[in-house]
Design a binder for these strands. Structure first.
Length: 276
DNA sequence: ATCCAGGTGCAAA
DNA sequence: TTTGCACATGGA
């Protein structure tokens, strides 16, 4: 079991702020799934706890970004000059940016485009149920995210049947190149952020937003600020922004917040969504 | 019913 | 280089 100071680690907010789709409520806490692993995470009093197989502790330490000092990030957000960012940081003080699996993140955010979060979750869940290995954690059965070789790569119909809609082709193509080795996500991790994003964008179905999310949530590139409909709203309503071009909005935000972009984005995204 | 969702590819300007 | 539109699906 891992015990960690809860001051900057709120499990609920970290999971529900939109960066991860595979988790569920469990005994006053959450079961969290990543690749083929699972853990039980919760807050009690001033402490956050992570329970998992001992051999997975190292994985989940990195997954929850436990080696990073979030007090510095939080303080910079509070003094950023934007009241909205300060309020969002205060409300989401315990949010941490996860270090997720590259492939699972890419596939998940391919599904996310022009889609709603509950629906994204159910599509991913159905995919795991159909193609992921059956595993067990604390007596609870769950399905791993499918292995590369278990992902269908012959026909779009396999994905259409799971509700992928027009995104079926994108995921099928990605699955194909992951399977045949044309696409090596692991080999991208040493690239600088602009190059990483450019390489990700070469994947069909991956535009600026999906590339930014993958760069942030899988490669921990906190200098990227994914701009979606919610961030556009924030930019317009809370930053008094006038640009309508997403590229320009992204450029503005990334220049403004630099290495803190990803953290600001999650604070703000979560805060804005929960205001309504 | 029409609209829209953590957008992107593609054609046209 | 930027803009407009189609795209599957399903919930409000």
């Amino acid at each position: 079991m891992i015990a960690y100071d809860g001051k900057y680690f709120n499990v609920k907010d970290t999971l529900e702020c939109g960066q991860i789709f595979r988790f569920c409520n469990y005994r006053d806490g959450y079961l969290v799934f990543s690749t083929d692993k699972a853990c039980f995470a919760y807050n009690r009093g001033d402490t956050a706890y992570i329970e998992c197989e001992p051999c997975d502790e190292e994985y989940f330490r990195r997954f929850f970004d436990l080696d990073r000092d979030y007090s510095l990030i939080y303080d910079r957000c509070k003094s950023s000059g934007y009241a909205f960012v300060a309020a969002a940081a205060r409300a989401g003080k315990g949010i941490r940016i996860l270090n997720q699996d590259e492939r699972e993140t890419l596939i998940s955010f391919l599904i996310s485009q022009n889609n709603r979060i509950p629906r994204i979750k159910s599509i991913i869940e159905r995919t795991c149920e159909k193609y992921g290995e059956v595993k067990s954690f604390d007596g609870v059965e769950y399905n791993a995210f499918p292995l590369v070789d278990a992902m269908p790569s012959e026909s779009d119909d396999d994905y259409v049947g799971l509700g992928y809609g027009y995104r079926a082709q994108f995921v099928r193509l990605a699955a194909t190149s992951l399977k045949d080795g044309t696409l090596k996500l692991d080999s991208l991790k040493n690239l600088d952020t602009p190059t990483l994003k450019r390489r990700l964008t070469e994947i069909k179905g991956v535009g600026p937003k999906v590339a930014d999310c993958t760069a942030l949530f899988a490669y921990h590139r906190t200098d990227s600020f994914p701009v979606d409909t919610w961030i556009e709203k924030v930019y317009r309503e809370d930053f008094n922004g006038v640009e309508t071009n997403r590229k320009k909005i992204t450029a503005f935000l990334e220049k403004k917040f630099g290495e803190d972009s990803g953290y600001v984005q999650q604070y703000v995204f979560h805060y804005k969504r929960n205001l309504i």
